[in-house]
Structures are given as structure tokens and as C-alpha cells.
């Protein structure tokens, strides 16, 4: 397995890990106060907190992964993205956007059929997760199968 493939597997696992912890936190708050669940301020804050926390955790995980990679393989990870990396990244971003747009439309649809705002936010957050997973899986697939 190449460095890029390993990096994508780690990225996938860290995304699922961060999202798992985030969901358990929101679920806990939901258990404590059911009034909060349809509060826009609560959802806005939850999303705004999730973004910087996930960025910081991902940076830490990437640094740890690079250190472990250097120790175990005696190889230095590539310090730049070449044309193949950029092409694969573009295709992955495109697929990721398609999935997120689908999730966004579904979330708007939930409002049209008069579902509570919390449903809309849950669909929106889940579509964020699924779109990221779709992007990582696209990268893994293209690195393995070729472009």
C-alpha cells in the first residue's frame, strides 16, 4: 500500500472518529435538554465548533501518522502534490460536492414536508460526513485502480 493510500485510510478513520465523538456529544446534550434540539443557536454553535475541532484533530493525526510512517518504513513522505495527486484530488472533490449537494437538497426537502428544523440540521451534518467519506473513497479507488 502506497503512502497516499495509507494517508487516505487514516483520513477516513479520523473522520469517522471525530464524527463519532461529535455525535455522542450532541446525543448527550439532546438527552439532557430536549428544548435545545430545535434551537437554532445550539445547531449553529455545534457546527461552528465542529469545524475548527476537526481541523485541529486532523492535523495532529496527520503529524502522528507521518512520524509513524517514517519510523516504520524509513521513508520520508512526499512533501508536494504532483499532477497525479492533483488530478485525483480534483475528481474526489467533485464527487464529494455531488454528494453534499444531494444531502443539501434532502435537508431542504425535509423543511418542505414540514419536518422539525433539527431533522434538517441532522441531514446537513450527515451529508457533510458522507460527502467527506465519498471524497476519501474516491481517492483510494483512483490511487488503486488508476486514472
Amino acid at each position: 500500500m502506497s503512502y497516499q493510500e495509507k494517508k487516505n485510510v487514516v483520513s477516513l478513520l479520523s473522520t469517522l472518529l471525530i464524527f463519532g465523538f461529535y455525535c455522542s456529544y450532541v446525543f448527550q446534550v439532546h438527552q439532557e435538554s430536549t428544548e435545545l434540539i430545535d434551537n437554532f443557536r445550539f445547531w449553529g454553535a455545534s457546527i461552528l465548533i465542529l469545524i475548527p475541532v476537526s481541523i485541529v484533530v486532523k492535523i495532529i493525526i496527520t503529524i502522528v501518522f507521518n512520524i509513524i510512517y517514517r519510523i516504520t518504513t524509513n521513508e520520508i513522505e512526499p512533501s508536494f502534490s504532483d499532477e497525479l495527486d492533483k488530478l485525483i484530488e480534483l475528481k474526489a472533490t467533485r464527487n464529494s460536492h455531488y454528494v453534499f449537494i444531494l444531502g443539501f437538497l434532502l435537508s431542504m426537502g425535509s423543511l418542505v414536508i414540514e419536518m422539525p428544523p433539527s431533522t434538517m440540521f441532522i441531514i446537513l451534518i450527515f451529508s457533510g460526513l458522507v460527502s467527506e467519506v465519498a471524497g476519501v473513497i474516491t481517492q483510494l479507488y483512483l490511487y488503486r485502480r488508476g486514472v
Binding site: 503512502y3 512526499p78 504532483d82 499532477e83 497525479l84 495527486d85 490511487y143 488508476g146 486514472v147
Partner: peptide, 22 residues
């Protein structure tokens, strides 16, 4: 040629057609 080893591997395995410049 200024690419990663992974790209050379992909070219040799015919999994990637390089750009004209490369």
C-alpha cells in the same frame, strides 16, 4: 522529473497517462 515515486509506479503499471509536459 519532479513527481512522486507513486506517479512513476502508476505510469509503469499503465494506470496513468502522464501529461504531455511530464
Amino acid at each position: 522529473v519532479g513527481v512522486t515515486r507513486q506517479t512513476i509506479v502508476a505510469i509503469e503499471k499503465e494506470k496513468y497517462s502522464p501529461s504531455l509536459e511530464l
